[in-house]
Design a protein around this nucleic acid. Structure first.
Lengths: 205, 205
DNA sequence: TAAACTAGTAAGCAACTACTTACTTACTGC
DNA sequence: GCAGTAAGTAAGTAGTTGCTTACTAGTTTA
């Protein structure tokens, strides 16, 4: 069957389509089991055509991480900078992260899968680099909040950042158990409310 | 090379050895990439010999989960029942879980890997069943603590359980980023201290 | 002590993997 | 209007995977 004119796409558009397909498959399949054949047929393309746009599967995986990095960090910074008060900023980051996961359920699976690779592969290095910048974003707000006297005295800011990311991880895990992300926003609100009371200085009830 | 008498092991001992090998490989390799060939050569056995003890790879995977279930839940219940006060029990469970992960770093990787399988495979079902019993254990202590008036009024116990497991997940993720579990116990103490102040009723500082 | 059983080996098979090659067809600049 | 290039196809290759088969050698037991 000869392809029509609409079949042919400029490589930049195809690359974006391929990356999106990988993340879509990650949401319903587990990234470790994704094959280049599966990606191709998910787009309606021949297997060989994939390699016109990415030289190797590893290069494609790297491009997926770069996409996630750019998208997620942009949204998180935007959410954080939307609020003057650092605690409000933390809340906005928490919910922006949640919304991103709801919109792209394959992303946390993909990221965690790469984190499992124990050796210092370039993939894992980029993921850990991104998470490092995530922690910096959180630490800056936490320190700002501390300087305002809004946080508990002697609060371990490092542990507070770990708890922040970890609670999101817990929400993701719950969503993976259920197999969908419905109700995740509400659960995120409830969890952040508890987190907030964990770090805030005690006020009169 | 003919095998000596010590080569031959009763199947029960070999099964335990094989399960241990899978978890050891999970700690340093990522469970998705483990092959039956790799398991066999890790023990110093022929590939075909594996299938004398487990009919299929899936059966072996199931046995690994059963082992984790029995070991982990036994320790968590023992830790919980060691304390009369529910908050002390929660702390003991948190640290018992941490100790288990430090002792068996492959376990959380293995578990999370199975959780990623989206379909209702028997593997995923058992994992989600175990996590359900974990939540029950937590909910019972949280409700007990609430009945003692130790918790904040209007605390969302469901979200509190999610935050409990999630914060452990966050610690595991941090350990995976660093590639080892050194310092995990100290980090766990700090994180639980914050968690504790999140759920406890406010006292005079 | 012979028979049944069990734990092991060595070799190989069918299916699947990432990737390549040879070729075709559409778009673009001169 | 045509040459060069880029996106696509179809078929194939080498390596790996889970699993099987045919055979060997210890162990148990009637």
């Amino acid at each position: 069957m000869p392809h029509t004119a609409t079949d042919r796409q400029p490589t930049q558009a195809r690359q974006a389509e391929i990356i999106a397909a990988v993340l879509a498959l990650s949401a319903s399949q587990g990234p470790g089991t994704i094959t280049t054949q599966g990606i191709a047929s998910a787009i309606g393309l021949t297997h060989g055509a994939l390699f016109k746009h990415f030289p190797t599967k590893a290069a494609l995986w790297l491009a997926v991480i770069d996409w996630v990095d750019a998208q997620l960090m942009t949204r998180l910074h935007a959410a954080a900078n939307d609020h003057d008060h650092p605690v409000a900023a933390l809340r906005a980051v928490f919910m922006a992260h949640t919304d991103f996961v709801v919109a792209h359920p394959g992303v946390p699976r993909f990221i965690f899968n790469e984190l499992q690779q124990p050796e210092d592969s370039p993939l894992k290095h980029r993921v850990s680099d991104m998470l490092g910048r995530y922690r910096q974003l959180l630490q800056a707000r936490l320190q700002h909040a501390a300087s305002l006297g809004a946080l508990r005295p002697r609060l371990d800011l490092d542990a507070a950042a770990t708890l922040f990311i970890g609670s999101l991880q817990g929400l993701v895990m719950q969503a993976m158990l259920r197999g969908n992300t419905t109700g995740m926003r509400d659960a995120a609100e409830a969890v952040f409310a508890i987190y907030r009371s964990a770090i805030l200085v005690e006020l009169a009830s």
